[in-house]
Design a protein around this nucleic acid. Structure first.
Length: 418
RNA sequence: GCGGGUGUAGCUCAAUCGGUUAGAGCGCCAGUUUGUGGUACUGGAGGUCGUGGGUUCGAUUCCCAUCACUCGCCCCA
């Protein structure tokens, strides 16, 4: 079609789509605020080092999947691929660690150099929350509860499942990794090529494989639960107990793992089958090691991020509140337009949407008033102007009344419009 | 990064087994209606058939490349 296109994997959010995004963000913001989480924003650009440190070299992420920016400084800069590292950096930069806990909500665009698919964009939008300084699993539960309330309030929990798992503490994971690798090495030849690679790089992620052959092999694999330390087990029990007390349904998924090292204990995903293979709509977990990895004090953290684009895709048109019908100002001639604008301003002061109709004769302008779904048209012609009046036309019934302009506000109030 | 599918009007889609002016519905504009919208009727605009190259007397149709979307894989912060 047209040769002028947006950058691959980026989208324009036209008003209708934008309203869905705004709804998701507003609901999450309000829920988070109710739990005492304050909104903040960090820059969209950060030094590459910020992400390099936290993400490590374990995956393609650092090398392949970040947008690097060329600027005149020496230090490489990237567009942020996710929100947590930036918030953690801000906490350290601003010396906010003096009074814990810290509770934050954020929303904004993230950038990932990936092959686009449905629900998988190069500029994506996320909402997220972070809780710093709470070691007790009550923090995990609170954070999960905020996610649940948000998706519930959006009316989506009928189509979404909460899956949780524990990765245990570092000791648990080390032990388990050893057991898993030992087991899988015996089956090395039968693993998929991808999993054979993962066995070297990041064996725990094999648990998350999509390959049927791998899945069969994993059925006999030693379960992670057996490697958990008593402390890790207790943590997880408390999380599950908390969810039950709050009436939040969940499914245990022992194969749910996170790709990066700083994650520990609780890992969770809210997933749906409605969006193809990009099923995770909101995900998070505990990251007690993150702050230290970034060079800050050792402060535990737990949080999540949700994909606004994906969540918005699950919303139906009628999930949006219908817009309030506007009033239409209909001057019958261009020479009267200014007077119309004055009348519009008067009514807009009452907080109502009042739109001018531009161009054309009365017929044209009424047509435009109908198109914007106005409830009333305020018609201004020679007759009206000469007597400081206005013709108020009910666009539903077609009835119209000729009233003095000074009475317009009262009449509209009596009709329940203002 | 790897493999499959798709690309015709603003939108949803036809058609051409390679052949003259590429169609419809919706939407848009105008008129019937120079002080009355919604419904109806009439008319109109809008396409280098995603882009570039090749084969051919002739390509929207066949071939190649490229771009975008899409499905899956890798990765998943």
């Amino acid at each position: 079609m047209t040769t002028i296109q947006p950058i691959r994997g980026t989208h324009d959010l036209l008003p209708q789509e934008f309203r869905k995004h705004a709804l998701v963000t507003d609901v999450a913001r309000n829920v988070a605020a109710a739990y005492g989480y304050a909104e903040m924003a960090t820059p969209i650009m950060e030094f590459k080092e910020i992400f390099k440190r936290t993400l490590g070299d374990a995956s393609d992420i650092v090398n392949k999947e970040m947008y690097e920016i060329i600027d005149r400084g020496d230090a490489p800069i990237v567009l942020r691929p996710e929100g947590t590292a930036g918030v953690a950096r801000a906490v350290i930069s601003n010396g906010l660690t003096q009074s814990l806990p810290l509770k934050y909500f954020y929303a904004g665009p993230m950038f990932r150099y990936e092959r686009p698919q449905k629900g998988r964009l190069r500029q994506l939008h996320q909402i997220g929350i972070e809780l710093f300084g709470v070691q007790d699993p009550i923090g995990d539960v609170e954070v999960l509860s905020i996610a649940y309330d948000t998706l519930k309030e959006l009316g989506l929990m009928n189509h979404i499942t909460l899956e949780i798992n524990t990765l245990g503490d570092e000791e648990s994971r080390k032990t388990y990794r050893r057991h898993l690798v030992t087991y899988l090495k015996d089956h090395h030849a039968h693993l998929s090529p991808e999993s054979q690679q993962r066995l070297e790089r990041n064996p725990l992620r094999i648990l998350d494989t999509k390959d049927e052959g791998d899945k069969k092999i994993l059925k006999e694999a030693p379960p992670l639960a057996e490697s958990l330390t008593p402390y890790s087990l207790e943590m997880f029990e408390k999380v599950k107990e908390g969810l039950e007390l709050l009436g939040i349904p969940y499914k245990l998924n022992p194969h749910l793992v996170r790709g990066l090292d700083y994650y520990c204990h609780t890992a969770f995903e809210f997933t749906t089958t409605e969006l193809g293979s990009q099923g995770a709509v909101l995900a998070g977990g505990r990251y007690d090691g993150l702050m230290e990895t970034m060079g800050g004090p050792s402060i535990p953290g737990v949080g999540w991020a949700g994909g606004i684009d994906r969540i918005a895709m699950m919303l139906k048109e009628n999930d949006l509140k219908p817009l309030k019908r506007p009033l239409a100002i209909v001057p019958m001639d261009e020479s009267i337009d200014m007077k119309g604008l004055v009348l519009a301003k008067l009514l807009q002061k009452h907080g109502h949407r009042v739109e001018m109709t531009y161009g054309g004769n009365l017929s044209k302008r009424l047509k435009k008033a109908t198109k914007i779904n106005a409830c009333y048209a305020l018609i201004l012609g020679e007759k009206e102007i000469s007597s400081d009046s206005v013709t108020l036309k009910d666009l539903e019934s077609g009835e119209q009344t000729f009233i003095p302009q000074i009475q317009v506000v009262d009449v509209l109030k009596s009709k329940g419009v203002l």
